[in-house]
């Protein structure tokens, strides 16, 4: 199977280049990550992140034939050859397929991604009805792979100011949680020309999310709540 992979090692290369590989696969190789491991066995200088190989850790996000996705759950049979692999767009490249995710995590951290509730905790669990808990479905499953945020043109233009779809999805995860008491502070923090409102519902995030989540809908819900509290 034929691949063209973005290569760049700042110690050796003046500029990035695409390197071609033609690799014989075994019948047990189903996913793109399996092929990348075969490639690495013959060329150990190819750098990429990977861990769980089942789509839950979020390590091996990359740009696959022009679309962001996780190598470990992308079927080889679904890919047009030569398969073009590039690092996630919009973030500085450290080396090959490894990007510097500092800006992505900085935005995630900026929304205070933790439950805020100053009440003294009860002796047992806090009570939450199944319907209240259901509000968190489609939100808590985010794996922070950055496929969505790095597919978002608004983030490419303003990575320092726009929170991005992943961070906003998590922001809404806490707004939607009946146990979190910081909704108005969270909304205040997002009420800004950039942090939330740079989202123009382009919906690239929904298109690429490997977990099938919908950040655009979550962002829409934040905007709705914000409008409601204004009137």
């Amino acid at each position: 199977m034929k691949f063209e992979i973005y290569r760049y090692d700042p110690e050796q290369d003046d500029k990035p280049y695409m390197k071609s590989y033609d690799i014989e696969l075994e019948p047990s190789d189903r996913m793109l990550l399996d092929a990348l491991i075969r490639i690495k066995a013959v060329d150990d200088s190819l750098s990429l992140r990977r861990s769980c190989r089942e789509g839950v850790c979020g390590s091996d996000a990359m740009n696959i034939n022009g679309k962001n996705g996780l190598a470990c759950i992308t079927r080889l049979t679904d890919l047009k050859q030569p398969v073009q692999l590039r690092p996630l767009p919009g973030l500085p490249v450290i080396r090959d397929l490894v990007v510097d995710m500092s800006q992505f995590f900085k935005q995630y951290h900026s929304i205070k991604p933790y439950l805020q509730n100053a009440e003294v905790a009860p002796e047992k669990e806090r009570i939450q009805t199944p319907a209240e808990r259901k509000e968190l479905d489609g939100l808590y499953e985010c794996i922070l792979c950055a496929c969505c945020t790095t597919a978002c043109p608004s983030f490419w233009w303003n990575p320092d100011k726009f929170v991005g779809p992943a961070g906003l999805l998590v922001a809404y995860r806490f707004i939607a949680d009946t146990r979190d008491h910081a909704t108005s502070e969270r909304l205040d923090d997002l009420e800004d020309p950039y942090r939330l409102f740079r989202c123009h519902s382009i919906m690239n995030c929904v298109d690429v999310c490997p977990k099938g989540l919908n950040p655009t809908r979550a962002i829409g819900k934040i905007k709705d709540i914000m409008i409601k509290r204004m009137v």
Partner: peptide
């Protein structure tokens, strides 16, 4: 209490 999204019973436990 840290915020873990556990599944719930009808009585909220």
């Amino acid at each position: 209490h840290f915020g873990m999204p556990f599944d719930r019973n009808d009585d909220g436990t």
